[in-house]
């Protein structure tokens, strides 16, 4: 069997006495989409924060392609190939749309202070190449974003903010992209476009996988290869959506008591 792209074993974190996430095991294979669902406050975003090194796990391990990355600082994990978006999108508001994407390439560019000061031509060439690539990425995501690339990111409407975050994540050439509720604030058309975008990006980048926290059931039904359900900080189910949705404990936890009675 091939090494999984991402492997979480017994991952957990406590804040003071509160167990926010408890012994979660999860495996993500290359070239797959995994959706994480669960009620609000179940610990989904906390899971993302543990994987990306924002929080340090109090137990368990994270491995990327077999290498342990548990407890590494966030910037090292990002450089290893895990990119993410945020639930309340966190763009560099006062910088241009283009600069936002270029900053996504930080981990794979090399100019340091001395190079910038003493070899300006080299530094400029690097940045110009980044700018050219960023323009290509933006054009691929949305013509409108490309047209507005010199405007500050802060003025974008919600759906465009999500798109720009995805473009920024792509810019790092990641192996795994974590999307935290990408469809929130999107209407049906936007969501359909988002799914098409994700599929196209996967086709363009062999081996790339997505881990997506999502509430929109159409997306969860259509997109992922694998669905993971989290409730009260524990993984309570895993499998394809058709199977998972039938499980009583999932319906109880996620869809609510009412849905169980109707089923």
């Amino acid at each position: 069997m091939t090494t999984p792209l991402l492997k979480l074993s017994g991952l957990g974190i406590r804040f003071g006495g509160l167990v926010a996430l408890d012994a979660v095991d999860l495996t993500v294979a290359p070239s797959t989409i995994t959706c994480i669902i669960g009620p609000n406050g179940a610990g989904k975003s906390t899971l993302f924060n543990l994987i990306t090194g924002i929080y340090r796990p109090t137990s368990g391990t994270v491995a990327l392609q077999g290498d342990p990355i548990t407890g590494l600082p966030a910037h090292r994990i990002a450089a290893r190939g895990i990119a993410r978006t945020f639930q309340s999108s966190r763009l560099f508001e006062d910088l241009s749309i283009l600069d936002n994407v270029i900053i996504g390439m930080h981990g794979r560019t090399r100019t340091d202070v001395l190079t910038a000061l003493l070899r300006p031509a080299k530094s400029r060439r690097e940045l110009e190449a980044c700018a050219a690539e960023a323009e290509t990425i933006l054009r691929g995501i949305s013509d409108e974003l490309f047209a507005r690339r010199y405007q500050p990111a802060g003025i974008l409407p919600q759906a465009d903010r999500r798109r720009l975050e995805i473009a920024r994540a792509l810019a790092s050439h990641p192996k795994l992209i974590l999307l935290d509720e990408p469809s929130s604030g999107m209407d049906d058309r936007d969501t359909a476009a988002l799914m098409a975008d994700i599929r196209r990006v996967m086709a363009d980048n062999p081996g790339l996988s997505f881990l997506i926290i999502e509430h929109d059931m159409r997306l969860v039904a259509e997109l992922p290869d694998n669905v993971v359900v989290i409730d009260y900080g524990k993984k309570i189910a895993e499998g394809d959506f058709a199977t998972v949705r039938q499980l009583p404990r999932v319906q109880q936890a996620y869809l609510g008591q009412k849905a169980v009675e109707h089923a």
């Binding site: 990002a78 006062d94 202070v113 910038a116 000061l117 690097e126």
Partner: peptide, 27 residues
């Protein structure tokens, strides 16, 4: 020169959002 380089961009990213900057691989 610093402004028009990767270094200046990294500083600007930290100014705008430190946590998001970390997640772009910025030390």
């Amino acid at each position: 020169r610093l402004h028009e380089s990767r270094v200046g961009l990294a500083w600007n990213a930290i100014r705008a959002d430190e946590l998001a900057a970390k997640c772009q691989g910025i030390n």
